[in-house]
């Protein structure tokens, strides 16, 4: 027998390493790092717009600017990638019934793509209109 503790069949049956764990780990950290300044910017701008009860015109004229629109797109890309990676780990850790686990991961991916696309479209639509 070889030195591996696992038969080739077990590997084929997805019981072995998918060799993608480091990739997942890295993207989680890169987005986390980006989100430190980005979320502070988010709180200082978007959060304040919501809490201070700004009008529609005030919001649109702020989001029209090239810097705020670009930062908003970068922020959205980072949070949706970060939450997809994070929630996937939560599902993998706590849901052990195979069909339910895979259904939830598929649902997570679909919802992430939907919400991400909706928000990107909205930012671009507001920018182009103004």
């Amino acid at each position: 027998m070889g030195t591996k503790m696992q038969s080739p069949l077990a590997r084929v049956r997805h019981m072995g390493s998918a060799k993608e764990g480091v990739n997942h780990w890295w993207w989680q950290r890169i987005t986390a790092l980006m989100l430190i300044p980005l979320s502070l910017w988010f709180v200082a701008s978007v959060w304040m717009i919501v809490i201070s009860g700004a009008t529609y015109t005030e919001l649109v004229s702020w989001l029209n600017g090239p810097i705020s629109a670009s930062l908003m797109l970068i922020f959205l890309g980072s949070i949706f990638l970060h939450l997809k990676l994070g929630l996937q780990v939560v599902i993998e850790d706590y849901v052990h019934t195979k069909w339910l686990k895979w259904s939830l991961i598929v649902l997570l991916l679909v919802l992430t793509i939907l919400l991400f696309s909706i928000s990107i479209y909205s930012v671009i639509a507001i920018s182009l209109r103004g």
């Binding site: 919001l59 939450l83 909706i118 928000s119 507001i126």
Partner: peptide
């Protein structure tokens, strides 16, 4: 907190969509 923030991201997407749809929807 991470799971809670994911629901916040969904709210953010809806908020942006209503803003893109126009003032009456933003209300």
């Amino acid at each position: 907190s991470g799971i809670t923030l994911a629901t916040g991201a969904a709210m953010l997407a809806c908020w942006l969509l209503t803003a893109a749809a126009g003032p009456e929807y933003y209300e």
